[in-house]
Every structure is written in structure tokens, then in C-alpha cells.
Simulated assay, not measured.
Amino acid sequence: MARRLRFDGWILGAGTASGTRVVVGHWPRSPLGPLSDVMVQRPDGARLLLAPTREAADLIAATYAFDEVRLVPVVVQRPDLRTWVVTAGPLRLRVTTGRRPPLGRLLRAVPPPLARTPVWVGLLDRPARLLTGLRTTGSAGNGRTEWYGVQDLHVVTALDATWDGEPLGALAAVRPPVTFGFGSVPPRPSLARVTTTVQLP
């Protein structure tokens, strides 16, 4: 029987004027306990995973595609309801979130127990592709299937990011889309409340 892993938390996706795109996963509940990770795609397309432990790195890298994996402390702090501060190896990131867009209000109207179920998420995949160009379910690495049960959405309004102390530039769209897996985060920088389910073969 196939085994399913559930990660419950947030995904933050943002681009920068330098062309570096960052996707932060912050999972208070995961099969490995509380966990945060960062996926980075550089302007030349190189894909990098920043993970806090070998166990986390192996699990994530078996589901997504990377050119390099680094084991570094990954710390996510929320000094207030609108601010996220991320420290992960060479990356320093401070993000401010704002209002819900119309899609966020629609997502909030779905009862969370329903929004998290793979059956519901699978039903939304085709409408999501037609309306937004994004995927809610698909084939992940090594024969795995993945479902993104999004329950809330806020826009990102400000960003301060550095890599090895060098500024990455102003907040920008996530373009081109990131290519870690079968889908990207929204092109508009955003913070999503999400339950990710991964089915192992």
C-alpha cells in the first residue's frame, strides 16, 4: 500500500531584481517534526536546496530536482503577523506580507479539512491550470505523487535579501518560473498556507 507523507505549514515564494528566486517551506508539522527548508534558483538556472539535516535533505531531494544540496541551519522567525525573517546559510531574507488577493479570500471560504484532502486538491488541478497556469497536483520525483492543498494566500509587499552579504535586489516577480518540481509558485510574490501531501510509490 502506498504511503503518504503530510507537511502542514506555509510556502513563501518571491523573486528578486537580480534574477534569484527563493521558495521557503516552513512546516510546523511534518513527518520529521518541525522543519524549514529553502529552495533557491539562481539567474543561470542552477537549483540549490538549503536543508537543516541530512534526513530532511534526502527526503526533499528525492521529491524535487536540485543541482546542489547544502546542509545549513535554517531558521524562520515571525516577529509579527506580517513579517518573516529567514536565515539559511548564505541567505538572509526579510519579507513583509500584505492583504489577501481575491483568490486568497476564495481559498479561505473552503473548510480546511476539505481543502487538505488529495481528492479535493485533485479536482482543482485543471481549473487552477486554466485560470492561473499553476498546478495543484502532479508527478514528483522517483515515482511520487504530490498534492498542494492551499488554504490561504497573502501577497508579499516588501523584501530585503542578501546572499553572502551581497544584496539580491528589489522584490520582483517569480520569472521565469522555478523548476524544482512539476509546478512553480505563483509569479506574484506570495505567502500560501498549505498542506502538502506526498505519496510514496
Rank of each mutant, 00 (worst) to 15 (best):
98 G>D: 13
119 V>C: 02
88 A>V: 05
126 R>T: 14
109 A>K: 05
98 G>Q: 05
104 G>E: 02
97 T>R: 01
85 V>A: 00
115 A>L: 08
94 R>G: 07
123 L>V: 14
89 G>M: 14
92 R>S: 15
100 R>Q: 14
106 L>K: 00
90 P>G: 11
88 A>E: 07
108 R>K: 02
91 L>R: 04
99 R>T: 09
92 R>W: 09
126 R>A: 15
114 L>C: 04
88 A>S: 10
116 R>L: 06
108 R>S: 13
93 L>R: 02
112 P>G: 06
110 V>P: 14
110 V>G: 10
107 L>Y: 05
90 P>I: 07
95 V>C: 10
119 V>K: 01
92 R>V: 09
112 P>W: 01
102 P>Y: 06
123 L>P: 15
118 P>C: 09
104 G>Q: 02
88 A>M: 12
90 P>N: 13
113 P>R: 00
120 W>Q: 02
112 P>Q: 02
89 G>T: 12
104 G>R: 00
111 P>L: 00
89 G>R: 13
97 T>Y: 02
115 A>Q: 10
92 R>I: 00
88 A>C: 05
100 R>T: 07
126 R>W: 12
92 R>Y: 05
109 A>C: 15
107 L>I: 12
123 L>E: 12
115 A>R: 02
86 V>H: 06
123 L>F: 06
112 P>T: 06
114 L>K: 00
97 T>E: 14
108 R>P: 03
86 V>D: 13
86 V>N: 10
89 G>F: 13
100 R>E: 15
115 A>V: 08
119 V>I: 10
117 T>K: 00
107 L>G: 13
124 L>M: 13
106 L>W: 01
123 L>H: 08
89 G>V: 11
124 L>Q: 15
101 P>Y: 01
85 V>E: 10
90 P>H: 08
96 T>G: 11
119 V>A: 14
105 R>F: 09
87 T>H: 13
118 P>A: 09
112 P>L: 03
93 L>E: 08
126 R>N: 09
102 P>D: 10
98 G>C: 06
125 D>M: 01
86 V>K: 04
91 L>E: 13
87 T>L: 14
87 T>V: 10
119 V>M: 02
88 A>H: 04
111 P>M: 00
116 R>E: 15
104 G>T: 02
97 T>L: 03
116 R>T: 14
86 V>I: 14
103 L>N: 08
115 A>P: 14
99 R>V: 08
91 L>Y: 06
110 V>F: 05
85 V>P: 00
124 L>G: 11
109 A>S: 15
93 L>D: 08
94 R>L: 11
105 R>H: 12
94 R>S: 09
101 P>L: 06
